Simulated scan of single mutants.
Amino acid sequence: MSQILTLVAPPGGLSQPLLHRVRDALQALGATAGAPDWLAPEEAADLPFDGLAAEQAIAAATTALDGALVDAIATPAEGRRKRLLLADMDSTIVTSETLDEIAAYAGLKEPIAEITRRSMNGELDFRQALIERVGMLQGLPISALERTWEATALTAGALELVATMRANGAHCALVSGGFTFFTGRVADLVGFHAHYSNTLEIADGKLTGKVGEPILDRDAKLATLKRLAAEHGLPLEAALTVGDGANDLAMIQAAGLGVAFRAKPVVAAAARARVDHADLRALLFAQGYRAAEIIGG
């Protein structure tokens, strides 16, 4: 069949009755649906189908799931395994917004986090919001960055996502509106081939309150996707992108598989694929990887 609906849940959250309920919902709309294929027991399964648009299949699945903590991602059966990965960092590969955490050491976490929230939901211009937030941190010692890094945690599945895609020949890059201080360390820790982000200007061991130019924003993320695809001789359909904020939306919409991961409302509403419940291994299951093929980080 020409399309696959992948259902993914936190471990133990996907049952045979739920699978059959979704399959019945597809068939009720006139689709031809094949037998479920388990990728990971009680966690991920494929439902091949024909006769419905991807958006219709996802909507039918969402209704059939009736609030169950299960993500539904529809992809073409052909070309599922992607050869280029571009991932956002903050609230995607790591669990936190690193700039907000830095701000805590200046006693400004709440006001800066509010600006971050509005920027990531597309309510504020990303570039201006970034300049404003960094400006508020002028004079903060770089020890705040070190302490923030010590408290930064990886999102579950990040190591497996990159290790598995690398092992299968994909080029993996971190592309962030955050800062090189963190992206370099995250890239080394997780195994990304490259990282692209912004630079905090520092003088005499303190933040100057300025960001180095050019600023990596929404347009720059999209440009990075197109450049890396061209450099590796790949069509955009061969790329997987993932992020949570409005500055990720252009690259999410341009890729063959663009995923809104636990995303802000404006991003979740506009993305063709979204993951709200499972961890980052969902991006591997969506490409047809079985549990036994996933490298454990």
Rank of each mutant, 00 (worst) to 15 (best):
260 A>I: 12
256 G>V: 10
253 Q>N: 11
6 T>H: 03
291 A>P: 00
165 M>F: 04
266 V>A: 13
250 A>Q: 13
202 I>V: 15
244 D>F: 06
59 A>Q: 12
95 T>Y: 00
101 E>A: 07
109 K>G: 11
83 R>L: 15
253 Q>C: 09
17 P>S: 02
56 Q>D: 14
23 R>Q: 12
94 V>L: 06
108 L>S: 06
174 L>M: 03
243 G>N: 05
116 T>C: 02
33 A>N: 07
62 T>D: 13
105 Y>A: 15
179 F>K: 02
101 E>G: 07
131 I>C: 04
68 A>T: 11
91 S>N: 03
68 A>G: 03
41 P>A: 14
208 T>W: 04
296 G>C: 11
261 F>H: 05
101 E>V: 14
223 A>N: 09
142 I>T: 15
272 R>S: 08
90 D>I: 12
159 L>F: 02
12 G>A: 02
49 F>W: 13
60 A>N: 00
288 G>H: 09
119 S>G: 10
157 G>K: 01
137 L>R: 09
221 K>A: 08
100 D>I: 11
183 T>Y: 03
253 Q>M: 13
265 P>K: 11
101 E>L: 10
210 K>T: 15
73 I>E: 00
8 V>E: 01
127 R>T: 15
210 K>N: 12
70 V>F: 07
44 A>K: 08
153 A>Q: 12
133 R>H: 09
58 I>P: 05
257 L>Q: 14
238 A>C: 08
122 G>Y: 04
136 M>Q: 15
294 I>M: 09
13 G>A: 03
121 N>I: 12
63 T>K: 10
296 G>M: 14
79 G>H: 09
43 E>Q: 14
264 K>E: 06
92 T>G: 04
145 L>W: 07
57 A>H: 02
210 K>L: 15
34 G>C: 04
11 P>Q: 06
24 D>N: 10
194 A>R: 10
290 R>A: 14
210 K>W: 10
213 E>F: 05
166 R>D: 06
268 A>G: 11
175 V>R: 01
267 V>Y: 00
